[in-house]
Design a protein around this nucleic acid. Structure first.
Lengths: 212, 212
DNA sequence: TAGATTGTTAATCGATTAACAATC
DNA sequence: TAGATTGTTAATCGATTAACAATC
């Protein structure tokens, strides 16, 4: 009887959070599933189910849910209220964009160090995070107590970086390289695949045009 | 009897492409669904269905499919063999990383111009693409025949940029800002939402740990 | 009280997996 | 020919939507 959450469902929670915070900014105190659904283009039933699945705080029939409570419940569910350490490998343009983005801290993700192979970058500091030689990954990572490795290196190096990271204790890989990684069971890989995202966009546009 | 493709399915095609190109590099000429499935951790049936859905070239029982033919068929299906023009709004760290990435051209996406509000960037050139003042978006975009707008501005500006882009003829929005956009029916929005991606990763790691 | 919205069970819809005849 | 793998139909599984009693 353990609750399970599909990938799609998990992806919706940060979206709810965003909208609920907006509603709170606008001065609302309570929100009905129907109003959230309308804003997001979701069905009302889906919103009800999704929120009930993570919120022990019950809603009030006739009035809706207390916005601050759901925000808190979603934040707790998503792990935003405790910090997890991560390292990033590859601090090129994309990697430094990630390091520079302040939002991850609010999501409970603390990127504590960076690694790169470029001598010009090694020893520097990006946003207070030291950049080390990637060859020292397995030496340094365990001491940082980081179990998430963000991979932002070119495709060709991604698999070997992932292998090193797993040896150094990574249980989760956030892969920004446009390539598939094979890792032993038990290691979670989440891919940010722009080619896939673009495929969806292009196909939808094409299909949409044909309909007219 | 028109074939339809789910979001998940569409997202898989670029992954197949990557693996098939690797197999070709390795000197293979034919591939069985089972071997592709094994590499990717997909089920064999899924691979068979996915490939059959986009490939008019039939496979050979007992031998598999001709790798070069499927590659060609997937590329055609994904629209990689004809160019579509796009503009990008916001050329900060993320925006310039996107402009700098050479891969999109191979996916049929031609980013023809950039827009920003920073006077220091306006009038410059990134990778051969002129950067214009964002206030001139509606004036310049129609002449570029670009119907896709990539949004890489801070959240607060994303909705108004999207509205401008749609007025200027955009039918597709590739949204990298961490916010939900509301647009009129018929405009396709595809979000690259790192918060959602991280939510999936974190939850999977947590669940995984509990299982042990 | 009446209206609105909750939480939840049942029905539907869609996607994935299993099974198998066809065939190179 | 026998083995392998195809393409496709049927079965299963899971997620979304519909329906509705409970209640503030």
């Amino acid at each position: 009887m353990v609750k399970t959450y599909s990938k799609n469902q998990l992806e919706r929670y940060p979206v709810y959070l965003k909208v609920l915070r907006e509603m709170r900014e606008e001065g609302e105190r309570f929100s009905a599933s129907s109003s959230i659904a309308r804003r997001l283009g979701y069905s009302e039933e889906q919103v009800k189910k999704d929120l009930a699945a993570v919120s022990p705080t019950l809603g009030t029939p006739g009035r809706g849910r207390d916005i601050s409570s759901i925000i808190e419940d979603i934040e707790t569910f998503l792990g935003y209220r405790e910090m997890t350490s991560a390292v990033i490998v590859g601090v090129g343009r994309l990697g430094s964009a990630i390091l520079d983005y302040p939002g991850f801290a609010d999501m409970g993700l603390d990127i504590v160090a960076g690694f790169d192979s470029d001598p010009a970058k090694i020893g520097t500091n990006i946003n207070g995070r030291e950049i080390y030689d990637v060859s020292r990954l397995s030496e340094i990572m365990p001491g940082l107590k980081a179990h998430i490795c963000i991979i932002a290196v070119p495709s060709a190096y991604a698999q070997s970086v992932a292998d090193m990271a797993v040896k150094a204790g990574a249980t989760g890989i956030w892969n920004f390289a446009p390539t598939h990684l094979s890792l032993k069971k038990g290691v979670i890989v989440e891919n940010v695949n722009l080619a896939s995202s673009l495929a969806v966009l292009s196909h939808r546009i094409k299909t949409n045009l044909k309909e007219d």
